[in-house]
């Protein structure tokens, strides 16, 4: 279990991360989301023990994060790159050995992962002979060859075609099923929505919202409704409990004011138009993200 408490990091009096707290249990994928410059990378770097927090604590399995921690952590940075002139297998073995895995054991698991990634035939090729996607696969292998208990992935899907994205997705899911913790930082809300069990949305170093996807959707989605109808619907635009409406001819997406329940809205309009379909919709994470960030700007 990874526990982060009241994390704060300042650089030359600029606060990059301000009072972040969260915990992640085994077998969970935790998403850290936020716009550019929100403090995601700083948060990740403090977890990685690359930089020291100004205040706050990070502990893993109730132990403070120390240099011992290096060997059980795996990291895939956002910008990917490897030693261009070196051989695939040499690089994998180098990083595995740095994580305290014996050369022999690393060689065996390297074959396993290369095969799983469908790039075993590139084993003895130099990195710059590989396509960008395949280079990224090699880097992905280096981040988990030592079977870390905590794997931190920063934008793991960028640069892959849909087929390879699928391979990576499956590997991430398999990995987390074996009781590991994955921290995923991404801009791709759709991916986060599908993979993460919990998310933390941050902006300007501060937590904006956090919790399980369903909780968040519940919290932000109760007042979104979608109706299909026949008849004149112009009156909907001026209803006082409608906060926002996208009105099409026979279809509308409506956001209600906070204190109004969907059934109250239904009562109000049911006599005036012929409703063919009515549903309360969960907003996409993408929508929540944009709304919440916009809100915090105001």
């Amino acid at each position: 279990m990874l526990v982060v408490q009241n994390l704060r990091k300042e650089y030359n009096n600029v606060v990059a991360v301000d009072d972040l707290s969260f915990r992640i249990d085994e077998g969970k994928i935790f998403g850290i989301l936020g716009p550019n410059g929100a403090g995601k990378t700083t948060t990740i770097r403090t977890i990685l023990n690359i930089i020291k927090p100004t205040s706050g604590t990070i502990s893993f399995d109730s132990k403070p994060v120390t240099d011992e921690f290096f060997n059980i952590i795996g990291y895939l940075p956002e910008e990917k790159g490897l030693y261009k002139k070196s051989k695939v297998i040499d690089i994998i073995l180098y990083f595995a050995q740095l994580k305290n895995i014996s050369r022999l054991k690393a060689a065996a698991s390297a074959d396993f992962w290369l095969k799983k990634m469908e790039i075993l035939h590139y084993k003895n090729k130099k990195i710059d002979e590989l396509s960008k996607g395949n280079q990224q696969k090699v880097q992905f292998i280096t981040s988990l060859i030592h079977e870390p208990k905590l794997l931190i992935l920063d934008e793991p899907f960028s640069g892959y075609d849909p087929i390879n994205q699928q391979i990576i997705k499956e590997m991430i899911l398999n990995f987390v099923d074996s009781g590991k913790i994955i921290v995923l930082s991404t801009h791709q809300m759709e991916t986060a929505e599908k993979l993460c069990s919990e998310i933390l949305l941050i902006n300007k170093g501060k937590e904006v919202c956090s919790g399980s996807i369903s909780q968040i959707k519940k919290r932000f989605g109760k007042n979104h409704i979608k109706i299909e109808f026949e008849g004149d619907s112009t009156f909907l635009n001026s209803l006082h409990f409608v906060r926002h409406i996208d009105n099409y001819k026979n279809y509308a997406e409506i956001e209600l004011n906070e204190n109004i329940m969907p059934h109250e809205f239904l009562k109000e309009v049911v006599d005036k138009i012929n409703i063919t379909q009515f549903s309360v919709v969960e907003p996409t994470l993408n929508k929540i993200f944009i709304d919440v960030i916009k809100q915090s700007k105001n």
């Binding site: 023990n49 690359i50 952590i73 990917k80 790159g81």
Partner: peptide, 11 residues
């Protein structure tokens, strides 16, 4: 190439 970050998260 940010390999540095991987290195210093290993030693």
């Amino acid at each position: 190439s940010r390999l540095m970050e991987i290195l210093i998260s290993s030693c």
